[in-house]
Design a protein around this nucleic acid. Structure first.
Length: 637
DNA sequence: TGCCAACTTAGGTTATGCAG
DNA sequence: CTGCATAACCTAAGTTGGCA
């Protein structure tokens, strides 16, 4: 067996010794973690296997007592030969070879039910399906996904003969002479289809089944239409529909101890989404754009820059604090910590004494850090690009939304959040619009541990079981393909769609170094949350922590010197009506003091009016002196 | 006199899936 | 079928001036 390292010429750092082994490590192991599709897989053994290790994928097609005995010998021999072949095929230092040995891990598919006596063609097709089910974008496949091996009676027969021969002659067996059967396939076909398209295909195949059921099986088949169709056909042929089809046939064997992840022994609890308010997990950027008012960009920054920013902010996060507020009689504390960042000392002063947050002055305001400033330039460029794309491709008539600003988006303030450990979270909320104005756009950069960002559409309570016409009331928000309500069959009787059914719940996975753009319609029409996680995959630099920088554009026209005050002297805050169907989408200024610990609300209420570009109509024109403004992060020094 | 404008999220309750 | 574990759902209460 021979190995050719990745064919792509990888840039070699001048500091390190350039060698084939180094190059192989770089292109086939380390860099895999940076591949867009791979990083966006759900955390767990599957992703670790794909991103942290290399080695062949093996299908076993022979099952007998003898083969059971021979199989471990074969796997051991294979690992041994690979180890021996490394220095021969890939020049490099001993250390580099050692690293390659330790990241080697084969994977064995050994489902007797599925592969017994399978032909090479059947294995090739199973391998193909496996790759398709990973839902990788069309990247060049890592070496382990380019070939697979088959262990059949022929392979094991020759191994047995070799062993016998060696025993007879009293010599060590010559494993190097044993053949391996390789089924090769470089690229799967392009399968980038959205969940909607897949669902539509399945509906056409199984018109009698509900979309819910189909979606269920599709999700449990990791998004593979073929696998879903197979499972359902088998089920239908066999018996009355039973849930949960074929259990996953894969077993990961590792011949040489390799990177062990703490969560290894429980290979993802594989929880099935519950039917009600089912959570739709989205991984690919296309799906995110199609189902939510967000755009996600994986691997946003060069890896070094992302790491540098992460380290800088981890250091900063020691000084973060937890937001306290009042709900009913209790003072509660947000289950994560945060801080606000602004550009200059003058702004710092304003933010602690002029701007208010949640009904009180912010005590925790910090000045922007060097890396945050560098990054903001790129955030600004990409966010503006994405906004333009969305206007062109998604919004009606290719025009910006009503109240959305036509101006360039310029980040001049940022909230930085820290979620330390899987339990830290934030409940469903919308961001305060007071200084951002209507149809605000936010650029949110995730660093460190990957967490789930959940979004759900806001549905006024009285809209829920009126079998409303499919056209959404707020015609202004065409979330592309809002295929959100698959269950539209309802009896006039007591089977009302619950609010949760209508609202749905969508999970966007936010890996390290990804930028999520929350588009203009997000805050008015959707709520978002970071849900507590069952398990997380620790990040090499941040451990259990996730750092999140949300770049915002504070509008000059909403400087606190203009915004209304309520009777109690507090700054009123700007919100959008969400619950009342009739006034849905209107903006209002209200007193927020009721939420500040130790303060009482004065119940100030006033409708807020804006022009089509989201500029406020102030009753009194602001005093002529030029109001203080916040500096673009990128400009300030 | 009563209704109305509208808003918080923790935590108890319920639905679901699965093992025995 | 039962019981358990987990995920998701849904409720709570107070404020004030204006108007019917």
């Amino acid at each position: 067996m021979s190995f050719q390292g990745g064919s792509s010429p990888s840039p070699v750092s001048p500091i390190d010794e350039p060698s084939a082994a180094k190059q192989f490590l770089q292109t086939e192991v380390y860099d895999l973690g940076a591949q867009p599709g791979l990083r966006s897989l759900p955390p767990g053994s599957e992703r670790d296997f794909l991103t942290l290790t290399w080695g062949p994928i093996i299908y076993q097609t022979i099952y007998s007592p003898e083969s059971d005995d021979l199989l471990p010998i074969f796997l051991h021999a294979l690992a041994r030969e690979i180890r021996k072949a490394l220095p021969r095929c890939l020049p490099g230092t001993a250390q580099q070879h050692d690293m390659l040995v330790h990241t080697y891990s084969s994977r064995l598919f050994s489902s007797q039910k599925m592969f017994q006596q399978a032909s090479e063609g059947a294995v090739r097709s199973a391998f193909h399906n496996f790759k398709v089910a990973l839902m990788l974008p069309a990247i060049e496949l890592p070496v382990r996904l380019r070939v697979c091996l088959v262990i059949d009676s022929w392979v094991l027969g020759i191994l047995a003969a070799t062993l016998e021969h060696a025993e007879f002659k009293g010599e060590a067996p010559q494993y190097g002479l044993c053949p391996v059967k390789m089924v090769e396939e470089n690229f799967p076909d392009l399968y980038q289809e959205s969940t909607d398209v897949k669902l539509a295909q399945l509906v056409s195949l199984f018109p009698d089944l509900s979309q819910d059921t189909l979606l269920d099986v599709l999700v449990s088949s990791a998004g593979s239409v073929e696998a879903t169709a197979t499972i359902i056909s088998e089920q239908l042929a066999a018996a009355p529909i039973k849930k949960r089809a074929v259990s996953r046939p894969s077993v990961q064997t590792s011949l040489i101890s390799h990177i062990t992840t703490p969560g290894d022994r429980t290979p993802e609890p594989k929880r099935r989404p519950t039917k009600k308010g089912q959570t739709l997990h989205l991984f690919s950027p296309d799906d995110v754009a199609a189902h939510t008012p967000c755009t996600i960009i994986h691997n946003f920054l060069p890896p070094e820059q992302a790491n540098a920013l992460l380290l800088e902010l981890l250091d900063e996060s020691q000084h973060f604090s937890r937001y306290k507020f009042q709900v009913f009689d209790k003072t509660v504390e947000s289950p994560h910590s945060a801080s606000v960042y602004v550009s200059t000392p003058e702004e710092h002063r304003q933010h602690t004494s002029v701007y208010t947050y949640g009904g009180t002055y912010r005590s925790n305001v910090r000045q922007i850090t060097p890396h945050m400033r560098n990054v903001s330039t790129k955030v600004q460029r990409i966010v503006n690009d994405e906004v333009q794309k969305r206007i062109r491709n998604v919004y009606p008539g290719g025009k910006k939304l009503r109240f959305q600003s036509p101006k360039e988006w310029i980040p001049n303030a940022a909230f930085v959040n820290c979620y330390d450990g899987p339990a830290e979270s934030v409940g469903y909320h919308t961001d305060e619009l007071t200084y951002l104005g209507p149809k605000a756009i936010i650029g949110s950069l995730s660093l460190g541990v990957e967490r789930e960002f959940r979004v759900r559409r806001i549905v006024p309570p009285d809209e829920e079981d009126t079998s409303s016409p499919p056209s959404n009331s707020s015609a202004d928000v065409p979330t592309a393909g809002s295929g959100g309500d698959p269950t539209r069959k309802q009896k006039p009787q007591k089977a009302p769609q619950t609010r949760a059914d209508v609202q749905g719940q969508i999970s966007i996975h936010l890996p390290h170094n990804s930028l999520l753009v929350m588009h203009a319609e997000m805050q008015e029409e959707w709520k978002h949350a970071i849900t507590p996680a069952q398990t997380i995959s620790p990040h090499p630099l941040s451990g259990n922590r996730r750092i999140n920088v949300t770049y915002r554009w504070y509008r000059d026209s909403l400087h606190p010197q203009y915004t209304p005050r309520c009777q109690c002297g507090q700054h009123a805050i700007l919100r959008c009506v969400q619950r009342k169907k009739e006034t849905r989408g209107r903006y209002m200024w209200t007193c927020y003091a009721g939420f500040a610990p130790g303060k009482q609300t004065c119940n100030f209420f006033q409708w807020a009016e804006f022009d089509d570009d989201g500029e406020p109509f102030w009753e009194r024109k602001p005093i002529e002196d030029d109001a203080p403004t916040l500096a673009n992060f990128a400009d300030a020094t």
